[in-house]
């Protein structure tokens, strides 16, 4: 256990814990944007900054709490003038990119300070509807083209974690863009839609209707459940994952309801067998070998 000071209070933390997690655990609100638990932190948005001192009197350092780890005796302050200045500036700058983002609007309220003149009325992020048809409209020449990209990199990191590596950040500086290689619709995209669902500003649009999913300027045929005909997975995704997991395409694209129905038929017919407690039990409870 490591003992450190957080806004004057002594708190305990475990070795290697991030300041962000410690602060949240003890009930501090720290705004974040580019942090996503499924991928490594990047320290890109700088919203989660806090001020730390190695000694009580030493000079303060403004650091991102998503990257900084606990250290014995560290003195952490989650709200100082400097921290506020950075957070307010960051939100204001990001609002210039995505003035309509509801997530950013509420962050702006949270961190206070001057809000940008450019801000318009908020709208909800584009609705993402998994497996059902959706009202979201594909309207973009630039592949994504929704509420405004803040370059948090969550989408590209998730895409890399999935092993697809379809989209990446291209160019540099303020001109950097998330897109498929060369600004073209990404060939390696499987249409999994994870990027759209994780995008904090709703910039990445995903639309699905008539058994077709559209994202990043590409169209994906949705495979329908062999039982009920409900659209389940995009064909590219299903074929790739069926190979990876060694599961047949038909099994992978049956919807849960239909799979449950057919396995219930099997288990219902299994003979009862003795168990340790003398009760009857059915089904292959000990492991399912593929």
């Amino acid at each position: 256990m490591i003992e450190l000071r957080l806004d004057g209070e002594l708190v305990l933390a475990s070795e290697g814990e991030r300041l962000l997690d410690v602060a949240r655990r003890v009930g501090r609100r720290i705004p974040t944007l580019c942090d996503h638990p499924a991928v490594e932190p990047e320290g890109a948005c700088r919203l989660c900054v806090v001020e730390v001192r190695d000694r009580a009197e030493g000079p303060g350092r403004v650091v991102p709490s998503c990257l900084e780890r606990v250290q014995p005796g560290l003195d952490v302050r989650t709200v100082t003038q400097e921290v506020k200045l950075v957070r307010q500036t960051v939100v204001r700058l990001l609002l210039r990119r995505a003035p309509e983002s509801a997530a950013l609007r509420s962050l702006a309220e949270e961190v206070g300070g001057k809000s940008s003149e450019a801000v318009r009325e908020p709208t909800e992020p584009a609705e993402i509807n998994w497996g059902k048809s959706s009202g979201a409209v594909w309207a973009s020449e630039e592949n994504a083209g929704g509420a405004g990209c803040v370059l948090c990199g969550i989408c590209t990191r998730l895409c890399a974690a999935a092993g697809y590596d379809a989209i990446s950040i291209q160019g540099r500086g303020a001109e950097a863009r998330v897109s498929g290689p060369g600004g073209e619709p990404p060939e390696a995209c499987t249409g999994c839609g994870v990027c759209a669902r994780a995008c904090p500003t709703g910039h990445i649009l995903l639309a699905e209707s008539g058994g077709v999913r559209r994202i990043w300027g590409r169209r994906f045929e949705m495979i329908r459940c062999g039982g009920c005909g409900e659209a389940t997975l995009p064909r590219e995704l299903a074929e790739l994952e069926s190979r990876r997991l060694g599961v047949t395409l038909v099994e992978l694209t049956h919807c849960p309801t239909c799979k449950r129905r057919s396995s219930a038929e099997k288990f219902g017919e299994l003979p009862a067998r003795r168990t340790r407690e003398g009760l009857s039990e059915s089904g292959p409870m000990k492991g399912v070998a593929r």
Partner: peptide
């Protein structure tokens, strides 16, 4: 501004 890598907000947009 032109040489900013574009990763963090203050440098890129600030």
């Amino acid at each position: 501004e032109k040489e900013s890598c574009g990763k963090c907000t203050p440098c890129r947009d600030g």
